[in-house]
Amino acid sequence: MNINATLIGQTVAFFIFVWFCMKFVWPPLMSAIEERQKRIADGLADADRAAKDLELAQVKASEQLKEAKATANEIIESANKRKAQIIDEAKAEADAERSKIIAQGQAEIEAERNRVKEELRKQLATLAIVGAEKILERSIDEAAQRDIVDKLVAEI
C-alpha cells in the first residue's frame, strides 16, 4: 500500500499517453467520423432532392401527356374538318362539271337540229322546185320563179 516512485513513472506515462492520444489518435478518428457524418448528411440531402426531382418530373410528364392528348384531339378535329371541306369541294366541282357537260350536250344537240332543219329546208326547196318544174312541164324561167319559191320555202 506504500506510495513510491511508481507514482512518478505512472504520472509521466499518463501525460505521454494523453499527449499521444491528442496528437495521433483523436484527430484521424474524429476526422473519419465527421467525414462520414458529412457524407451521410449529403447522401440524405441528395436522396431528398432526388425524390423532389422525381415528383417534379412526374408532374411535368403528366402535364406533357395532357398537352399531347389535347394536341392530338386538335389535330383529329382539324383533319375531320378538312375532310368535310374536301368532300364538299369535290361535290361542288362534280356538280359544276356535270352541268357543264349537260349544257354542252344540249348545245350540240341544238346545233345539230338547226343544221338538220336547214338541210331539210334546202332539200324541200329543191324538191318543191323540181315538183313545180314537173307540174308545169314547160319552160318556165327558173330564175324568174325562183324568188317566189324561196319565199315559200322561208315560210315553211
Binding site: T6, G9, Q10, A13, F17, F20, C21, F24, V25, P27, P28, L29, A32, E35, R36, R39
Partner: peptide, 25 residues
C-alpha cells in the same frame, strides 16, 4: 503496475491509432 499499465496504455494507443490511420469514411 508499471508493466501492465504502460503495456495496456500502449496497446490502447496502438489499437486506436492503427484503426484511426486505416479509418475509412
Amino acid at each position: 503496475s508499471l508493466l501492465f499499465s504502460v503495456g495496456l496504455g500502449v496497446l490502447f494507443l496502438w489499437l486506436f491509432r492503427s484503426v484511426g490511420k486505416k479509418a475509412t469514411t
